[in-house]
Amino acid sequence: MQNSHSGVNQLGGVFVNGRPLPDSTRQKIVELAHSGARPCDISRILQVSNGCVSKILGRYYETGSIRPRAIGGSKPRVATPEVVSKIAQYKRECPSIFAWEIRDRLLSEGVCTNDNIPSVSSINRVLRNLASEKQQMGADGMYDKLRMLNGQTGSWGTRPGWYPGTSVPGQPTQDGCQQQEGGGENTNSISSNGEDSDEAQMRLQLKRKLQRNRTSFTQEQIEALEKEFERTHYPDVFARERLAAKIDLPEARIQVWFSNRRAKWRREEKLRNQRRQASNTPSHIPISSSFSTSVYQPIPQPTTPVSSFTSGSMLGRTDTALTNTYSALPPMPSFTMANNLPMQPPVPSQTSSYSCMLPTSPSVNGRSYDTYTPPHMQTHMNSQPMGTSGTTSTGLISPGVSVPVQVPGSEPDMSQYWPRLQ
């Protein structure tokens, strides 16, 4: 039975679970980093996980050691009161100082060594604690504590007292930064006198190289990059290397530039699409467009005044059976039934097929058609009795279509119309 579990990581490298990497692998990681390889490249070359490479390099940059820390136990506290007071002093002298600059000053002034120097995250935590204590304490208590930490007896009751030896409130920041720059020169002199001055200088240079600022491109470089971006948004590694040799930039910087440029292009394309949609959409909808001609068919113009009344309900007709019959029939052209047409008796099958359309009241044959006459024609229609054979009435077949029909004066039988409509 094995005491430890061995495995293979996602890159194909072998590791022992819970145990640190061998010293030979750690040394190779540092050597590759000094030669300029990126952590992701080191991870692929040595088949070590990216997190492990970053952790080893980060500890090497901070402490200069590649040895693993002790497994188990607690780390001794490195942010001692003396170190905290120095950090507060540096922050007062130059409020814009960075944590890694404070760390360098602690090393250069001999406050800490490589073994007990606090990390950048520890210094940031100390600065946050100082800021929170400043908010919790009152103004007087804060000034007393700062005077105690600074070891001075001057008056701290006013704002300019934060910067000793100065009279203009805006000047101390520059003086403090100048003092810090002077301390940086002392850093070089002190570290050069040490035993491991060369190694420390190499480590600091490598650290500065990794902690780079934003790349500033010249106009020629920007023009070359934009020209390549117009050709393709995704250049391959050969195109990037050719462009890197042409404009004297690292291939990694060119790759990052193209990634950022593609993101910018997507944002601009989104804005262009929004403007295009806004320009195509009308600002207001016309009133006429809300009524579609496919839904509402136009009603033909009436030929006679009587045809303006298109349904039985508008003429005072309360018989719903006839109203439904007229509205359900398709529109037909106007025609006239003459008196000489043969009077065919209704076929029983045809009569039964339209039995649902006729009223059940037996008085329908005896009703006159003056009910369908509009009010303004009552006088004219009353002067001509319906009993004469020459009287013409208008029957409504569908809305908007008038059918003048000659009705025999002897017997106005409704059943004569249905064979004609089939």
Rank of each mutant, 00 (worst) to 15 (best):
V48D: 02
L106S: 01
E133S: 10
G64V: 00
G12W: 00
D115G: 08
Y90H: 08
T25P: 04
S54P: 05
E31M: 10
G51L: 03
I71P: 00
K55T: 04
S96Q: 14
V8Y: 08
R44I: 06
R92V: 08
E101W: 07
M148Y: 12
G13T: 02
T113C: 11
S24R: 13
G58E: 06
E133H: 12
D144Q: 11
R44W: 06
K91W: 00
C112Q: 06
S85R: 10
N3A: 10
R92A: 14
G64P: 01
A70H: 11
H34Y: 09
T80H: 05
I45E: 15
I71Y: 06
L57I: 14
D104I: 08
K55G: 02
G51R: 15
P95H: 14
E133G: 11
I117A: 09
Y90S: 13
N114D: 14
E109D: 12
N114P: 11
A131Y: 10
L149Q: 05
A131S: 11
D144C: 10
K91H: 03
V53M: 02
D115M: 14
D104Q: 12
G73Y: 00
R69N: 13
G64H: 12
P20T: 01
D41M: 09
W100I: 06
L32N: 03
E82L: 09
H5S: 09
A139S: 10
Q27V: 12
T63Q: 04
M137I: 11
R103L: 07
V83R: 08
D144W: 08
T25Q: 15
A70D: 09
R59G: 02
K86H: 08
N150S: 08
R69H: 15
R44N: 06
V53W: 00
V48E: 00
V126R: 04
S96L: 14
R19C: 07
G141W: 12
D115T: 06
M142I: 12
R44G: 04
L11I: 05
P68E: 00
P81C: 10
L130R: 08
D115C: 13
S121A: 05
E101M: 05
I66S: 08
S121G: 06
T63M: 03
L149H: 12
Y143N: 10
Q47C: 05
S54Q: 07
L32F: 15
D41Q: 06
G72S: 00
A131H: 08
G138D: 08
F15Y: 08
A70C: 11
V111C: 10
Q2H: 06
R67N: 13
S4A: 11
R26G: 00
K28R: 09
P118C: 05
I29W: 00
Q136L: 10
S122Y: 02
A33C: 06
R105N: 11
F98W: 09
V16T: 15
T25R: 14
G73P: 00
N9L: 02
V16E: 11
V53N: 02
P22A: 06
P118K: 01
A79L: 07
T63Y: 04
L21I: 06
V30P: 03
E62G: 12
G73R: 00
Q47N: 05
S108Y: 12
H34M: 07
G138Y: 10
N116A: 12
Q10Y: 05
R92S: 12
R128I: 04
I45M: 10
T63R: 03
Y143S: 10
R77Y: 05
C112W: 06
S74M: 01
A131I: 13
R67G: 14
V8D: 03
L146H: 07
L32V: 03
R38G: 05
W100E: 02
S132I: 11
E82H: 12
S122L: 01
M142D: 14
Q89C: 00
E82R: 09
N17G: 04
E62R: 07
T113K: 08
S65F: 06
A131Q: 08
